[in-house]
């Protein structure tokens, strides 16, 4: 299958291909070995991440979060085959789409979608682990928010982990889209949000008052 595939993106740790899958188009995510890593460490990390990714993807999809549909997993050659999403990546949308750059209402609407989707992910105790605007998409057909790339995700019920997950997203917003700092709207239990306030204070060398 990988023979007929077309490479569309080389990510940090996987190559993304598109390929025909029965009657549909599929995405094949192939994790490649990292030559810089010690072989033992590399094998362990790759195997762990393939299974984790497949499990989390499936778990989210099952509970109603819009994620790519999982088609099949091959642990032998570290590939996951999943649905091809027709749509826009949020990062590109916020950088190049004037409608989103200028229209506050449009931004709020998007922020709300992100918030609701993340709340659903966290409700089933999945921690995404790499929430950036590159990993959020808008499906073209129904404008639904799709969360992609569960490559670093894991399962945890701790408010701590959920808060760190949100903090990662917040930092991604601040560093990539410096002028979009209000763009979040996550409705969740008070526990997670108060934890988030705690997590924000972490990181070193922050100026502290009092």
């Amino acid at each position: 299958m990988i023979e007929s595939a077309i490479l569309i993106k080389q990510g940090a740790e996987a190559r993304i291909y598109t390929a025909p899958f029965l009657t549909r188009t599929a995405i094949i995510k192939e994790r490649f070995s990292k030559t810089y890593r010690h072989p033992t460490l590399d094998k362990k990390l790759t195997a762990r991440r393939v299974t984790q990714e497949a499990r989390c993807l499936f778990k989210c999809r099952k509970s109603g979060v819009d994620t790519p549909v999982l088609y099949f997993v091959n642990t032998e050659n570290s590939t996951i085959c999943m649905e091809f999403i027709q749509g826009m990546i949020i990062k590109d949308l916020l950088i190049s789409d004037n409608e989103y750059i200028q229209n506050k209402e449009k931004q709020d609407e998007l922020a709300e979608k992100i918030g609701i989707a993340l709340a659903k992910v966290h409700a089933v105790d999945v921690i995404h682990g790499d929430l950036t605007t590159s990993n959020l998409m808008l499906r073209e057909s129904n404008q639904s928010l799709v969360i992609i790339d569960f490559g670093l995700s894991y399962v945890s019920s701790l408010p701590e982990d959920k808060a760190v997950d949100l903090y990662v997203l917040e930092k991604a917003f601040l560093s990539t889209h410096p002028n979009s700092e209000e763009m979040k709207n996550y409705k969740a239990s008070q526990g997670i949000l108060s934890k988030l306030a705690e997590v924000r204070l972490r990181g070193r060398k922050r100026s502290m008052v009092g």
């Binding site: 810089y36 890593r37 460490l41 590159s134 990539t176």
Partner: peptide, 19 residues
């Protein structure tokens, strides 16, 4: 060294991919 440097290279690579 192998472990901590692999972590550092990984996050550097992720930042490169991101921007």
């Amino acid at each position: 060294q192998e472990t901590v440097f692999a972590m550092l290279v990984e996050i550097t690579e992720r930042a490169m991919a991101h921007i």
